[in-house]
Design a protein around this nucleic acid. Sequence first.
DNA 1: GTCGGAGTGTGGCCCTCGTCACATTTCGGA
DNA 2: TCCGAAATGTGACGAGGGCCACACTCCGAC
Lengths: 236, 236
Amino acid sequence: MNARSGPPHDAGQVAAVLAEISLFRVLGESGIQSTARAGLARRYRSGQTIFHQGDPGESLYVLLDGLVKVVFTTEHGDEIVLNMLGRGDTFGEMALLDGSPRSASIVTVRPAWVFALPRARLLDLMREHPGLADEFLRLLGRMVRRLTDQAADLAFLDLRGRLAKLLLQLADKHGQSDGVVDLPGLTQSDLAALIGASRPAVNRALQSLVARRLIAVKGRTITLLDVAALRKRGGL
Amino acid sequence: MNARSGPPHDAGQVAAVLAEISLFRVLGESGIQSTARAGLARRYRSGQTIFHQGDPGESLYVLLDGLVKVVFTTEHGDEIVLNMLGRGDTFGEMALLDGSPRSASIVTVRPAWVFALPRARLLDLMREHPGLADEFLRLLGRMVRRLTDQAADLAFLDLRGRLAKLLLQLADKHGQSDGVVDLPGLTQSDLAALIGASRPAVNRALQSLVARRLIAVKGRTITLLDVAALRKRGGL
DNA sequence: GTCGGAGTGTGGCCCTCGTCACATTTCGGA
DNA sequence: TCCGAAATGTGACGAGGGCCACACTCCGAC
C-alpha cells in the first residue's frame, strides 16, 4: 500500500475530527485525546484500496476526510457498491464483532485521510466507557436498517426509482446544501454499482431524468431540480 | 393477539431450549435457569403476527419451536420476506440496539412457541456476563453478512439462481437431512417474497428446475435431487 | 500538440420477468 | 364429508433492462 503516515502533530487534528462524531463524543474530551493517540492516521491517494474483502480485520477505521466506497465482490467478480462514506463515517466495524475477515473492500474515490483504531484499543475503551458500546450498537442498528432498505429497493423499485432515491441520498449526505451533487471521482459505473444496474442503463436513466427536468447534469455535476418529484419516483 | 400463556412449569422446558442456543450457552447452567424465569413464553397459532413493523420494541424474542417469517413492508404495501426463522433462532434484536420501533413484522408460518426477554433483563444479563455481549455482537455480524449477501443476490442472480440458492439454504437450515424441504405453511407466494419475485414467476422457475431434474416437487414438499447443479445455478 | 485511456452517450437485439387473466387443485375448518 | 377459500399451474402480452458495439469527448502524460 502506498500510504504515507501523517506528521506527528496529527493527534490533535485527529481528536478534533473525532470530537465531531457521535460514536466518540461519549468519551469526553480526555477520552477523545487518548483515543487519537491510540490509533494511527494515514493518507491515501485516490483509487487506492484501504483493505480488501477477505483480509483479516483487526481495526476499526474512521474516515477523517475524503470519500470512499464500500465494495462487495462476488466470486465471479461482479461488484456492488454497498455505500459511499464521507468525513466522520466509520468502516471496518464488522471485523470487531467476530474475528471474521473483511466482508467488503474499501476503495478511495477521492484522496482520503483515515484513522485506524486497533480492535484491542477499542475494546479497552468500551470497557472504560459503557456509553461507547451503546453508541456502537446504535451504529450497527443503522447499518442493518440501511441494508434492509437496500434489499427492498432492489426488489421493488425499477432502475429509475433506485437512481432517483440514490441521488437524493447522495445530495443529503455528501452534496452541497442546494441540491448539487458534485462528487469528483464518482463515475456512472459507480452509480450503476450502487443500484445494481449496468452502466449504459444508468446513463439512459440519467438522460430520462434530465428530459423530465428532475435533474440537470453538467459534466460530473448533478443538480437536483425537482426534489419532490424525485422523492415520488424513489417511492418516498 | 390471541396468544395463550404456557403452563407454569414451562420454565424448565424453556431453559432446555435456551441451553441449545450458542447465544445463551455462555451464561452457564444457573444463568440459563434464571434467564428462563426472567422472560415469558407464549404460544401462537399459525398465521398470527407476533409483532408488527413500527411497533415499539422492548423485548428480545427466542423462537423455542415452530417457524416464523420476518416480513418487511414498504409504504406501498409491497412485502419482502427477509428471513425464515426456526427453533433456536432469535428475533427483535434491532429494538435492543437503539430504542427504535420494530423494523419488520414477525408472522408465524406454523404454530410457534416463543420466549420474550425484556430489554432491561437482557441488559442486566450482559452486565453480569460479558461473554453474552460478545455473542450478541457475533449474532449481529451474521445478520449484516446475510443482508449483504441478499442484496448482492438481488443485484446479480436471476430469478432461478435466487430460487436455487434459497432452496439450498432452506434445506440446510430447516429441511430434513436428505435434502427434503417440507415446510407446511410455506407457500409459493412466500418463496416469491423471499427472493423478490412474483408468484407466477416462482411457479415457472420451480417447473423449470423440475424439468431439468434438479428438484422434485410433490404437493408442498420439495426434494433437492442435484445439489451440485443447484449450487452452480445459485452462483456458489 | 498529440496520443491513449477512461468515461460518457446511443443504437439494436433479445430474453427475462411482471402483470393480468383464468382453470384446476388442494386445504382446512365446520 | 363437504364446501369455500386459498394455493397452484399456465397462457398471452409487453416493458424493462442486460449485453454488445461503437462513436465521441475529455483529460492527463509525454
